[in-house]
């Protein structure tokens, strides 16, 4: 390996690592707020990327049907709940988010020709399609089980992952997609070429992380999420709705996931099941941070990206094996540094 290759691999590793870092942050966030180990995080990456690819190909993304279906399901469940509770005033909101929003989104998709829109509009449309699925999934799968053990929530998360992978195959087929790059620019630093897309990924990741930081530090909702993460009961007593906190954290997770997918779709071919492995690599990073620390999780994720990149050069067939075996020394380190684990969750 000469310096040129080393730098190239490093660039690759950092680009992927940035994506893993974003996902790791989302995973830590969701776990801290809801205690859900969000295995389906990676599915949002695939859904985001493939929805964008569908729009660009002039097809109707299958995620629209998922959005409509989930909306109808929630409308029925919440509608019955509202009638039983005699709270008819809730109906406008229920209808707005679960019927009107998906309906209007669908209408827009039929009226405009998404393939002819500028890239930015296509990206926005994809996000509009995919991001609401986060809170919807929370409502349907996790909210009824909010008080269950971490183990039960984990099994549900895995079940949701299975269902989403199956749906991804149904919507987008088994072929992979790659979207055009955000920019064709190539920057040269001495002997290294850095593509515009790499810049996009890194700049967006940094920007997103900074925004999240400001959100958590400076806004009321961000503080509410942090409060819920530290003490659910305490937060509830202070008037913070844990349901709101759960939905909000899933919304952020879906946003981060879908956006990550859109960022990497020009770099790597995305298949309906690609998201899972990408998400799990974010997980390895999150576990480095003990599912608790954001900066350590992000650093861990970068490390995963670099490790993956260099191992693909030395032993490309064993790339995945090496990355996922990394978890063993990490767990060893964590188990040696953790002294007392309180069982009561």
């Amino acid at each position: 390996m000469d310096l040129q290759i080393a730098l190239l691999l490093g660039q690759d590793g950092i680009t992927n690592g940035a994506i893993y870092a974003l996902l790791a942050l989302a995973l830590v966030l969701v776990f801290a707020v809801t205690r859900v180990i969000f295995i389906p995080q990676g599915e949002f990456v695939a859904l985001g990327a493939l929805s964008l690819a569908s729009l660009q190909a002039g097809k109707t993304p299958g995620t629209l049907w998922l959005l409509l279906g989930a909306g109808i399901a929630i409308f029925i469940i919440d509608g019955i709940g509202a009638i039983k509770a005699g709270a008819l005033h809730r109906f406008p909101k229920i209808v707005l988010w679960n019927l009107a929003y998906p309906g209007i989104t669908g209408l827009v998709l039929f009226l405009v020709k998404p393939a002819e829109l500028p890239m930015l509009a296509q990206v926005m449309l994809s996000l509009i399609l995919v991001v609401p699925l986060g809170p919807m999934i929370y409502r349907l799968a996790f909210q009824p089980l909010a008080e269950a053990s971490v183990l039960v929530l984990l099994i549900v998360a895995v079940a949701v992952h299975m269902a989403l992978v199956g749906l991804g195959l149904l919507f987008f087929g088994a072929e992979g997609s790659r979207t055009p790059a955000f920019s064709d620019a190539v920057f040269e630093f001495g002997t290294i070429h850095v593509t515009g897309q790499t810049f996009w990924v890194l700049a967006s990741s940094v920007l997103l992380i900074a925004t999240l930081y400001l959100f958590f530090e400076r806004t009321l909702y961000g503080k509410a999420l942090r409060a819920t993460a530290i003490n659910r009961i305490g937060a509830r007593l202070m008037g913070i709705s844990t349901i709101m906190a759960g939905k909000l954290s899933f919304l952020l997770a879906a946003l981060i996931g879908a956006f990550s997918g859109i960022l990497i779709a020009p770099i790597t071919t995305i298949y309906y099941d690609t998201g899972f492995l990408i998400g799990l690599k974010g997980f390895v990073g999150a576990i480095v941070g003990g599912l608790a620390s954001y900066p350590v999780a992000a650093a861990g994720a970068l490390l995963v990206g670099l490790l993956e990149s260099y191992s693909s050069f030395w032993a490309s067939a064993f790339k995945e094996v090496i990355v996922f075996t990394l978890i063993i020394p990490v767990l060893l380190w964590r188990s040696l540094t953790t002294h007392h684990v309180e069982e009561d969750e």
Binding site: L154, I287, I328, R334, V341, E343
Partner: peptide
């Protein structure tokens, strides 16, 4: 030795 969810993740 870690909390319950590390075994499934492992």
């Amino acid at each position: 030795r870690l909390s319950g969810h590390y075994l499934p993740l492992g």
